[in-house]
Every structure is written in C-alpha cells, then in structure tokens.
C-alpha cells in the first residue's frame, strides 16, 4: 500500500524539513517505552514459557533507536522526509499500542489470558508454524482465484448480455432477480452434497458470490452508456461487433470495476465460510483447526495473515483499475 497523503505531496517547495522531526522523537520515546515494558516486567505465564520476549524487547529497542536517528537525519534528506513526515502520529500510536498490548497481556494479565495473546506468542506461532500457514495461504489463494475468475468472467458476460440483448435479458433477468440476491452461503449445504468434491462446490459458491455484483454492475454500466457514443460510431461505419467491443465495454468499465470490487469482498466471505465448513485446507480451515485446539495465538496469527492477503488483493485490483482507467478523473485512491 502506498501512503500518499495529499498534504505531504503538495509541499514540494519545502526542500528541507525543520531542524528536528519532533513526532519522530516522540515515536522513539513510545517505542522505547514498549521495549522497556517488554524487557523490564517478567512474563506472568503459568501454562507456557514464552521464548521470544527478549527478542521482541531488542527489536522494539532497535526501532526506538532508528526513530531517534531519523528524528535528526530525516529532515535533511528530502525524498525520505516527504515519505515519512506525515506518518509521525501513526509511528507514535503504534509504539504506544505495543507497550499497552504487552502490559495488559503478558505482564499484568489484565485481559483474560488464553484468549488474548501477547506479541511474543504471535511471533512464536509465525516461527513455529509458518509452513502450515504458508500452505493455507496458497490453498486459499488458489481456491479464491478459481472461483473469482470464473465468477467474474461469467458475471461480465451475463452483464453484457443483459445490457445489450433484449432477448437474452428476457430469459436471464428474471432468473437473476430471483437467484442473485440469495447469499451464496445459503447454497452451502446443498452444494457440498451436489458437487463431486468440496473444492468444486466451494469454487461454485465463490463464483456465485462474485458473479452477481459483477453482472449487475456490468449491466448498469452498459445501460448507462451515452447513446450518442453509439450514434457517432454508427455514422463512422461501425458494425454491432465494434459497438459492443469498442464502445459499450470500455464505456462500462468504470462500473465493471465497482462490481469486481464488490465481488471480491463477497468472495472473501464465502471463501472463509466454505473453508471452515467443508474444505480441509486454507486459512478458514486453519482458523477452525486452531479453535479446535484452543490455540488462540494461531488464530490471531491467521487473522492477521488473512487481513494482509485480502487487503493485498484489493490493492492489486485497484492498481489494475488505475492502469486501465487512467483516462478517468478523480478516482478514489485505495
């Protein structure tokens, strides 16, 4: 994700920052506090012995030192300064967050213990179980990709058909009105029963969840094309094929991308539910497996990975859109 704060970008005249980056200094103190809390107070653990506490304290101390150095040097280096000057408050808040997190979990047990885990346990999960987590990410991505690509392709085709051909609309519209709004997860019990494998059932469900918003928005995109665009092309000798491929589709693309975005969100939801209930792999499966073992650290670890994965995919989609729709003005930055 790119941190493009508008104000940071619109200050090109300030070639040099101030003498000292004050919020950087504050961030250094916050991270020093986190390191101190982590190092100074003993872990209050009766069940497990955390092995990474010391490493975390060192890492937080190193971050504090880095901010200290940056507080003095960053204002002197314009490209670096432009990147980080607006982020100071976030750096401070993160340091305070880690200090507090450490305090209320491992150090003073203010939060009920097995359910809320300290950072050191999360780190341990990543160190011990990275192979299984990695496999789960790959399994989730592969399932998601199959369902999403299939659903988007079919949804797009149906949307173009609905927007372009009255005869297609005559048959497809009522079916879509009835079936589309049904949450894809409602098909779950039936799908696992009807399909030969849980993988094909889940692919179908993800495709269904993706396809509906893509179809509706592609349709509305085609329907809202300025009719003069067709007149122009027709007077210049365009045939129907040209009107669809070179006029209707490009004109509808902004809508299509909204549909793809909504479909992606819906596909995440179905992916996780399908993996929790039927598929025996993937991050959803990992979550319910961790729940079975009351391995709360693993659950948080998987949740974080899942958040990064979903956010990363949406970022990718937005980047593809920015590339394809660079002619549009005023698009939202993700």
């Amino acid at each position: 994700m790119s941190h493009s704060l508008p104000f940071a970008r619109e200050a090109p005249l300030a070639f040099r920052g101030p003498a000292l980056w004050w919020s950087g200094l504050l961030a250094a103190s916050a991270w020093a506090l986190a390191a101190f809390v982590t190092h100074h107070f003993p872990d209050q653990s009766e069940i497990v012995e955390w092995t990474q506490t010391g490493h975390i304290a060192v890492a937080q101390g190193a971050i504090a030192v880095t901010f200290l150095v940056l507080a003095v040097t960053a204002p002197l280096i314009p490209p670096l300064w432009r990147r980080i000057q607006g982020l100071g408050p976030w750096f401070v808040a993160l340091g305070l967050f880690f200090a507090t997190w450490q305090a209320v979990t491992a150090k003073f047990s203010l939060l009920p213990m097995p359910f809320f885990v300290p950072p050191q346990q999360l780190v341990e999960v990543y160190l011990d179980d990275w192979a299984r987590l990695g496999e789960s990410v790959l399994a989730s991505l592969w399932l998601l990709a199959r369902g999403y690509v299939l659903g988007s392709a079919v949804g797009f085709a149906v949307g173009i058909g609905l927007g372009w051909s009255p005869r297609f609309g005559y048959w497809a519209h009522p079916v879509m009105r009835l079936v589309g709004p049904l949450p894809a997860t409602a098909w779950l019990p039936l799908a696992f029963f009807l399909f030969p494998s849980s993988a094909s059932a889940s692919t179908f469900l993800i495709a269904l969840a993706t396809g509906f918003p893509v179809a509706v928005l592609t349709w509305s995109g085609v329907a809202s094309v300025n009719p003069d665009f067709y007149d122009v092309a027709r007077t210049l000798g365009a045939k129907p094929r040209f009107l669809v491929l070179k006029v209707a589709i490009p004109a509808a693309l902004p809508h299509v991308f909204v549909g793809l975005f909504m479909g992606l969100g819906a596909s995440f939801a179905v992916l996780v539910v399908a993996e929790m209930l039927g598929v025996r792999s993937g991050l959803g499966w990992y979550l319910s497996w961790a729940q079975g073992w009351a391995a709360y650290g693993n659950m948080y670890a998987a949740l974080l990975v899942m958040a990064l994965m979903c956010s990363g995919l949406i970022t990718l989609l937005f980047q593809a859109r920015d590339r394809l729709l660079s002619w549009q003005k005023g698009v939202v930055k993700w």
């Binding site: 300025n226 003069d228 665009f229 007149d231 122009v232 092309a233 007077t235 210049l236 000798g237 365009a238 045939k239 040209f242 070179k246 006029v247 490009p250 004109a251 693309l253 729709l325 002619w327 549009q328």
Partner: peptide
C-alpha cells in the same frame, strides 16, 4: 455528423478518437 457535444470517447486519446472511423 459532428454533434453539438464533441462526444469524444473519454477512454481514448485524441489520436485514437480521430482514428475511430478508420478503425471501425
């Protein structure tokens, strides 16, 4: 026809708009 609104395709550059008839 040249219409009252230019009705250029916003997703095409000026060159590609002008090329529309030949392309079609």
């Amino acid at each position: 026809v040249v219409f009252q609104d230019p009705t250029l395709y916003p997703w095409r550059t000026v060159w590609r708009n002008a090329a529309l008839g030949l392309e079609a």
